[in-house]
Design a protein around this nucleic acid. Structure first.
Lengths: 383, 383
DNA sequence: CCAATAAGTTTGATGCCTAAACTTATAGCG
DNA sequence: CGCTATAAGTTTAGGCATCAAACTTATTGG
């Protein structure tokens, strides 16, 4: 169903009809059904100037089905519950070094977190209509199996199956996906940004989410967006993956910290704060380290943009926080290397969602799935 | 309409129904209309074992609408006429150094070639249902305007508009596109190859056509697939585009010829023959030059494959002819650098279409457009 | 209070597709 | 040879989403 119409929130039936090309009659009958299923609610009559009856504003139901987002990060677990409008209604974060725990242990903690969230949803009196799980690795989209998560040390873990088995999720659909992809989607759904962009998340690894025409580009098996091991310097240092001069090795967090001279065994948040502090004080090494990373990033991204013809680059994760120091060299590289940049320069922006992007994207995917095709939810709600 | 069904040529209505999930009734009525519009013909009853009535085989009509393909190459003009089945029914090639002629002069020659082809179609008693024009440059898909063709020295040429004006094309739809993209489509439609791949054409420039799920990935404005100026060596030689270490500069035809020591002002075909000859005799410099290009190509392609999660790389243009000498280093680089290659290695194949790929793709696009949505053609045919 | 204007609903029609029954064509078997 | 099983293709009736157009309701401005 074309319920994606309803995300032009606050508009009247007539306006939606005009926008979508459907007739008022069609929109009316569709909207009636959506109201019946508690996906849409009517609001106050909209203000309009001039003569004529005022339309009744339509909104996605804030007490309709909610989406549960889960993120298995390298050093934390996060969950959140959002409503149809994308508003976050509850959230939990706990730090945990998931590298040192076995997948089974981590999954049992995740299960506990999911149970907590489901109980909270119950207490709030809302249904959970779907669930998204973000993981820092390559997920096969068809099966939901995590093939490999290098920075977690996992291989071949059936995350969806395990969660289904451990938590009692019965009929709740579960989507498993890459964190960078979910983060890109969160960016897409947040505010009124562009519908075509590449979102680079610099966390422990570097991942990209490619959004084309308002949809995620996932590739054939769902492994798309792996930008971390794109080569940027054939004579560069060796990377953990075995190759030389990978982007992740040259522009990843760790390398920035190392070159800036802040790298030690402090907590991640302390490291980045330290770096930002030094940058604010114009510390030579820190500025040089950041600019160097920006240049490598620009080289890799110019390839991406040339290949995919994307008008916008969005910096996410740690890169968003470093954005003021990345912009200049990044834009330089893009301007120089992107073939089409002479008549339409590539725009570079920073994400506003910070480290929460991936969980929110995961939760958002769940509600978007309902909006894109409400029938399964509607029939499930009746049962 | 789901006429794309009919490209499972030679099957019966019942088989098509089974394949597509539609009912026999629906397929029957659809097929009737297609036969009425001369897009489909019935063939001899198919051979079947076992009891039961035999189905009547269905074929795309060989005398249905034809597609006209035009290629404005850097040093030649080519046209071809293909029928709905993709069979080439007529072809013309003329060499011409289009670099030294003004766009107006070239377009007037193209017009003449188009008129010849249209006259031939008339003589054959077939309608031309659409036309595709392949150009070696960046074409804005919305407008059909050629923004820039570096190797031709053109900028901002309204190829579609000019051809419309010069030849009397009245109502024939004209598609203008990048040659590499058309070549990739030709590869897709040829035989039973994969539905997801990246096709690299090494001609004067290097271009890529990205095919995902049986469709071309064009990007937002149609500039997708620009791989020629992806950086592969930050300390590499300067390229004509102003940047350093572009793939085209390091793995393009010219560089291979230069390193092999065959580069002079002979005709393109002589140069490549010379190189192939030397390779066949295991000439040291030629082998080294080719292998070096293969390695750079592998580096660039591994980035593409990581980013887009494509299972197959197809070598086209000059690279297809050099394939035996490119394979090994290319596969090495891909195996080492592609993250997902441990459990699903990237396949590398060579195109069989040679230099004809782009024209055929252009012509094919025209007929595919009719098959994808026959209504405009059907109504036009009635008028 | 009435004309003009616009939102939303009702009604009947249309077009695409389906299910199920029916017709046609073929193989195998007694 | 004719009967039965099987399968292709057609006919028919009906479902369902959408549409066009008329109608009802609500609101402004003279």
């Amino acid at each position: 169903m074309l319920n994606a119409i309803a995300d032009l929130s606050g508009h009247s039936r007539a306006e939606i009809a005009a926008r979508t090309g459907l007739t008022k009659a069609t929109v009316s009958s569709l909207v009636d059904r959506m109201i019946g299923a508690n996906l849409v609610v009517e609001g106050a009559a909209a203000v309009r100037t001039g003569p004529g009856r005022r339309g009744t504003a339509l909104f996605l139901a804030p007490d309709g089905p909610h989406g549960l987002g889960v993120e298995i990060g390298v050093d934390y677990l996060a969950t959140c519950l959002i409503d149809l409008t994308g508003e976050v209604r509850a959230r939990w974060i706990q730090s945990a070094d998931n590298r040192v725990l076995s997948p089974a242990r981590v999954l049992s903690r995740v299960t506990k977190a999911v149970r907590t969230a489901l109980a909270e949803a119950d207490r709030m009196g809302v249904r959970v209509g779907g669930m998204g799980v973000a993981v820092p690795g390559l997920v096969e989209s068809a099966t939901g199996i995590l093939r490999v998560a290098p920075n977690l040390g996992w291989r071949e873990v059936d995350v969806r199956g395990e969660l289904r088995r451990r938590a009692d999720l019965d009929d709740i659909p579960v989507l498993v996906g890459n964190e960078a992809n979910f983060a890109a989607l969160a960016e897409l759904w947040q505010g009124t940004g562009p519908r075509d962009f590449v979102h680079v998340s610099g966390e422990i690894g570097i991942g990209a989410g490619i959004v084309v025409d308002g949809g995620l580009f996932e590739g054939v098996s769902g492994f798309g967006g792996e930008i971390g091991h794109v080569m940027v310097d054939p004579r560069g240092p060796e990377c953990a993956c075995g190759a030389r001069g990978c982007l992740e090795r040259l522009a990843g967090q760790e390398e920035i910290y190392r070159q800036a001279g802040v790298l030690d065994d402090r907590a991640p948040e302390e490291l980045i704060t330290d770096l930002l502090d030094r940058l604010a004080h114009r510390d030579r090494r820190s500025v040089a380290a950041t600019r160097s990373a920006a240049r490598w990033l620009g080289i890799a991204l110019s390839g991406v943009v040339n290949l995919l013809d994307l008008p916008t680059v969005v910096l996410g994760g740690t890169y968003a926080r470093l954005a003021p120091w990345l912009w200049e060299p990044l834009r330089d590289e893009l301007a120089q290397r992107v073939v089409s940049s002479t008549w339409s320069p590539v725009e570079v922006t920073a994400s506003t969602l910070g480290s929460e992007a991936a969980v929110r994207g995961a939760a958002g995917s769940a509600v978007r799935a309902i909006l894109a095709d409400p029938d399964p939810y509607v029939t499930a709600a009746l049962a």
